[in-house]
Amino acid sequence: MKFLDLTWKGLNELNDEHQSLPTKNSMAYRDKTDAETTAVAVEEIDASHNLISKFHPKFICSFKHLIKLKVCSNCLSEIPAQLSNLTMLKELYVTNNRLTFLPPELCRLQLEVLNLSGNMFKVFPPVLCQMVQLKTLLMGGNGLREIPKHITNLIQLEVLYLGGNAIRFIPNEIGDMLSLNALSLCDNQLTAIPTSFSKLTNLKSLSLHNNVLHYLPREVLSLVSLAELSLRGNPLVARFAHDLAYDPPTLFEIASRSIALSGTNYTTSCLPPQLIQHLNSASKCPNPKCAGVYFEHKYKQIKFVDFCGKYRLPLMQYLCSPECISSGTSSAASSEYETEDEEERSNDIIRRVLLG
Rank of each mutant, 00 (worst) to 15 (best):
F121P: 05
G163E: 00
L185F: 08
G140F: 01
F121T: 09
K122M: 12
L99A: 15
P126E: 12
T195C: 15
F169D: 13
V159I: 15
N119S: 10
A182Q: 13
L154D: 10
P103M: 14
L138K: 07
M177T: 11
G118T: 10
S179T: 06
Q110P: 07
P171L: 04
N96L: 13
C129Q: 04
F197P: 01
P125S: 07
H209V: 00
L134M: 11
S196K: 07
N210Q: 08
G164D: 00
R168C: 13
L144S: 02
L160W: 06
G163I: 00
K135E: 15
N181E: 07
R108V: 12
N153F: 07
L200R: 07
A166E: 05
Q130I: 01
N210E: 03
N181Q: 09
F169C: 14
Y161L: 01
I193P: 04
I155M: 09
I147K: 04
V113G: 05
K204L: 12
N172P: 01
R168E: 15
I174A: 04
L190F: 06
L183E: 01
I170M: 04
I167D: 00
N115E: 15
R168T: 09
N97Y: 08
N142G: 01
D176P: 00
M177A: 13
L183C: 03
D176W: 01
H150A: 14
P171F: 07
A182E: 13
A192M: 10
L208F: 02
L99Q: 14
P126K: 10
G140E: 02
Q156W: 08
I170G: 02
L154W: 09
L200E: 13
G175F: 08
V127S: 05
T195I: 10
L137N: 03
E112I: 11
V123L: 11
I151W: 03
K199V: 03
K199S: 14
G140M: 01
L203S: 12
N96I: 09
N188C: 10
R108H: 15
L157Y: 06
A182Y: 07
S207A: 13
H214K: 05
P126G: 10
T191Y: 00
L160P: 05
L106Q: 08
L99D: 15
I147S: 07
C129I: 05
P148F: 08
I167V: 09
I151H: 03
E112R: 14
R168G: 05
R168V: 01
G140C: 02
R108I: 10
I174K: 04
Q156L: 12
